[in-house]
Design a protein around this nucleic acid. Structure first.
Length: 191
DNA sequence: CAAACGATTTTCT
DNA sequence: GAAAATCGTTTGG
């Protein structure tokens, strides 16, 4: 099923992985139902040297523990007490970098996702936004620490042609000072 | 043990 | 465009 190999995630260049994830398909299995979509918006979090990153200066807490695992691990945490945010851990064990997935283009399990989002039709906000897409796919804190090589949640080649990549600054990280200006956000849409 | 704070979303004006 | 909603995690006393 063309699952991406662990070596894909273990790249020490987190921005390269963030770019390469565009156009890949993220899939989640819940109770035999598969939901998923094409990744169209990502952000890189560069670990110890990035003030916007939870693991800045090797800060280590129970919450961000999975960021220290080897590339290909799932990092999910709760933001604003309400939203589950999904990240792919990159680089090698002990180097806490990761890519946050901000938006997808829905492809699999639309019915289930509509139910998860309590919506009757797909609109602009359906799977756009880090909290919105995890709600649609059914990603929760229970997925934190899982391997992307497993069957519950994984990423595979989609074969979809993507348009040009738009680069920008990350959202909601004003507290990070000058690091908030880094061009670490990447967007692209299927062509 | 109390208090402040979000890698956001939704709703209201 | 502004503001509320809402609670686990982190920090400080």
């Amino acid at each position: 099923m063309n699952k991406l190999p662990l070596s894909f995630y273990q790249n020490p260049d987190v921005c390269a992985v963030a770019r390469e994830l565009l156009g890949k398909e993220l899939l989640v299995n819940s109770d035999g139902v598969t939901t998923g979509g094409i990744i169209i918006d990502t952000e890189a979090y560069a670990g110890a040297c990035d003030r916007a990153c939870h693991s800045y200066n090797y800060r280590r807490t129970p919450r961000n523990e999975s960021m220290y695992r080897s590339g290909g691990t799932v990092y999910v945490y709760i933001c604003y007490g309400i939203h589950h945010l999904f990240n792919v851990v990159t680089s090698e064990e002990g180097d806490p970098q990761g890519v946050m997935i901000r938006a997808i283009h829905p492809t699999q399990g639309i019915e289930q996702m509509l139910a998860n989002r309590k919506k009757s039709k797909i609109d602009k906000t359906f799977t756009n936004g880090p909290g919105a897409l995890t709600a649609a796919l059914g990603i929760t804190i229970a997925h934190n620490g899982l391997s992307l090589e497993g069957d519950r949640i994984y990423i595979r080649e989609s074969g979809v042609k993507m348009g040009p990549i738009k680069v920008g600054t990350r959202i909601g990280v004003d507290y990070a000072g000058s690091d908030a200006l880094l061009p670490y956000r990447f967007c692209s849409v299927p062509q």
